[in-house]
Design a binder for these strands. Structure first.
Lengths: 252, 252
DNA sequence: CGTCTTGTTGAGCGCGATCAATGACGGTGG
DNA sequence: CCACCGTCATTGATCGCGCTCAACAAGACG
């Protein structure tokens, strides 16, 4: 783990391109300057490095500047469950607030960098800036919703449907960040996808091949291209939200 | 749904026996008095009634005074996943904060009563009482941890293990509230347990019968008695936390 | 008492797990 | 540069846990 204490412009929230997805949503420039004083340090992680481990005392929460991380939750017997994959602008370490120590482990899937948000100081600042408090609550709440969708997937969907909704969820989140969303690289291995979806890697592989055969996607190793997005939505058991938006104006 | 606007003593947080599990943890009596002015209304629910539905605009979060509720998350095609079972002192409706409308539906499993916590006013108060803010964040964070355990269960455990850890989790939460924790009534149907655990009701039934045969539990309809708690922990793939506590002093 | 809902138990099947072999890269050293 | 190796992914063959379908039992309720 490589700590960087940086006062260069790119280290400040006020000029960070992720402002619209990260903590500073809906906050006035003068208040963002206050956040700048709070978020001064960053951590640089190589692929495979841990940001925090289960049981580490909570001192900070983290926002991803670039890169991808996974969080996983382990059993005494060694079995591990991947809980989430995390993209730039997302906040990590929130499960440490409850009991003062992280419950999961966060590991970089590629070279990544995260901003350190000292938690004590952050809570103080959130009390001073109502919009910051609101945004933090929104982030926590959306994290809950994301986990609930994940629970629905593991509890009620078949392997095929889980994989389809996983790909679509990833695509949506990439799109929200302005990345190319119908063609991207999977930063996680088949093992990690399988763990996340509660299925075996052979099943992941087979389903991806089947999707490709059906003309829903193209896949070469970890590079994936979504061809028939509507078809994927149909498979996932949910409607394409973009379609819903397109149709609404016509009926109302 | 039956609204009650009550100024009787029992309606106040300051005298509520749930204070130690609910919002007012770690808050001074004078500050609890402020919470009293916020939490004046309650809702009385009959079995089967909804507290809120998916899409309802968020106006409040709720704390359970008595009774049990389930939250579930639905798919367009009708499939539903039970996300959680909720006991007195727990906060409901947190998934509505993210986008201003509830993402799940909360339904009473028995006659229940919840306190209405107007959300706007609550956020204001949380800014004035640092300990209230801290406690709220702890509650949100623990909710995340609970969901993560649930994900581990659905993603990595076999049916038998899921059921064992479900029973133990319920038992722990009942114990924390001072209820009898080795003998209690399941407030939820087999269908609801099955949905929660991502297995079919026949499997729930069979596993319970098997547990009873093995002498781990006694069960008659919805009344359950845990006989061999350590055995259940072993089945669930986790260690009995009470044992860990007992052993620790010896080795250190 | 019959009816309806909820839970239990049995029999057979199928989805996805498991075991196994092969293929595709990427890195490393000769 | 290619040969070698380790890791990761794909594909096939077989197995088994849990699903599905079905019949029956036990309460709950009018």
């Amino acid at each position: 783990m490589n700590y960087t204490n940086s006062d260069v412009p790119s280290g400040k929230c006020s000029v960070c391109v992720l402002g619209q997805f990260c903590l500073p949503v809906g906050i006035s420039p003068s208040d963002i300057a206050k956040i700048d004083t709070l978020v001064k340090e960053r951590v640089h992680l190589q692929k495979g490095e841990s940001l925090y481990r289960h049981g580490d005392p909570l001192s900070a929460v983290y926002s991803i500047r670039f890169g991808t991380l996974k969080t996983e939750y382990g059993l005494e017997d060694g079995r591990q469950q991947v809980i989430g994959f995390h993209l730039p602008g997302e906040i990590l370490g929130l499960d440490g607030i409850g009991d003062g120590s992280y419950q999961s482990e966060a590991i970089a899937l590629e070279e990544s960098e995260v901003c350190i948000i000292r938690y004590e100081a952050f809570e103080d600042l959130a009390r001073q800036i109502p919009e910051l408090q609101k945004q933090f609550h929104r982030i926590l709440s959306r994290e809950l919703t994301q986990d609930q969708r994940h629970l629905l997937s593991l509890g009620s969907l078949r392997a095929e449907e889980r994989l389809a909704s996983f790909l679509l969820n990833l695509s949506q989140r990439l799109a929200a960040r302005g990345y190319l969303n119908n063609e991207f690289d999977l930063r996680m291995s088949r093992v990690e996808i399988g763990s996340y979806l509660g299925i075996q890697i052979e099943t992941v592989s087979r389903m991806l091949s089947r999707f490709a055969e059906s003309g829903l996607i193209q896949i070469k190793q970890r590079h994936i291209k979504l061809i028939d997005v509507d078809g994927l939505y149909q498979l996932a058991g949910i409607q394409n939200p973009e379609r819903t938006v397109q149709i609404k104006p016509c009926v109302s």
